[in-house]
Design a protein around this nucleic acid. Structure first.
Lengths: 168, 168
DNA sequence: CGGGACCTTGACTATCCTCAACTTTTGTGG
DNA sequence: CCACAAAAGTTGAGGATAGTCAAGGTCCCG
């Protein structure tokens, strides 16, 4: 999910995972767009159809509200990352978050598949491609990660990585 | 509304205005706190009471959902600010946003009252106090602002300021 | 009128960005 | 299965923006 400035600067707001509901921030001018980094199956729903479903199944509205609250909490976590964390902390936070998101409610995976290119990670973390690359290299040299290929990352020391991420 | 890292780094997530509903991101561990910068009237509502009201007035839920969507859009705007804008653009965006927020749906005010200290603005914009101060001075020297007292700012050239803010 | 909080300004520093070259990976056709 | 080209990623040198540290000024409040 990306947002653009007129001059082309780009901010990735998040990476949608399988099963995720998109378009929650349903406003008139929804100035956010979505790009696929992998083949996608998409179930599309007109605004009218959604209204109808909400009317038919009132519990849906409760679910939407909870989803919105979750999204909001994630956005707030991202704001402190973008506003106050160092490059090293941002990359660590991203890896920890991605690991948790890929298998929620179970011990997080240590073998991570990163389907998005470095540029997307950079725009997600408010950094440049080069800084992301350098920071990953540094974490590898420090023995926290193994990076067999650019899109495959193994977390060797989850606890230390989480400590760097300074998740509350 | 502030969020803290363990070592004390602080991110201001937003400034609540009169009439604003707080606590939308109602999660178990709601790791956000609120500080008052001015005297406040607060109407407090237990979770149970809110549940009751939602049951009694289903339209409330719709309203909450719309409010959440609004909050989400604002958070996304803030993310691109924190991730991709320069100090000058951040300060300009803050002033434009504050002006719009103080009188929604009418021509924005040019006389701004900023009740919060510079430190809060800095933590809101992901900058330091010194950078906020220097940037405001620079905007004043450039003829875009007048700053009779630190908490009173007059926007002299709204169009130019908005252009710097690069709001989409 | 005095003290403390807040703000501004300056000099210097560090982190991250920019620009550039080079390397690795990936995907396609022979 | 291999060769090749394009895309993606890494690394290095140098520079700019914002941060840090420090001093001094201003405003507010009792």
């Amino acid at each position: 999910l990306v947002k653009l400035l007129p001059d082309g600067r780009r901010q990735v707001l998040g990476f949608a995972r399988a099963g995720q509901f998109l378009g929650l921030a349903l406003r008139r001018s929804y100035s956010v767009s979505a790009e696929a980094v992998e083949p996608v199956h998409l179930y599309r729903l007109s605004r009218n159809r959604l209204q109808g479903l909400l009317h038919e199944y009132p519990m849906l509205e409760r679910w939407l509200l909870e989803t919105a609250a979750n999204e909001m909490a994630i956005a707030q976590e991202q704001m402190i990352l973008l506003g106050r964390k160092t490059a090293r902390e941002r990359v660590a936070s991203f890896l920890i978050g991605w690991a948790a998101g890929s298998r929620p409610c179970v011990p997080p995976e240590t073998q991570l598949h990163l389907p998005m290119p470095r540029g997307d990670i950079a725009d997600y973390l408010g950094l440049t491609i080069e800084t992301v690359s350098r920071t990953l290299t540094r974490l590898r040299v420090d023995g926290l990660l193994a990076i067999p290929t650019p899109s495959e990352v193994e977390v060797l020391r989850p606890a230390e990585l989480a400590a760097i991420a300074s998740k509350i």
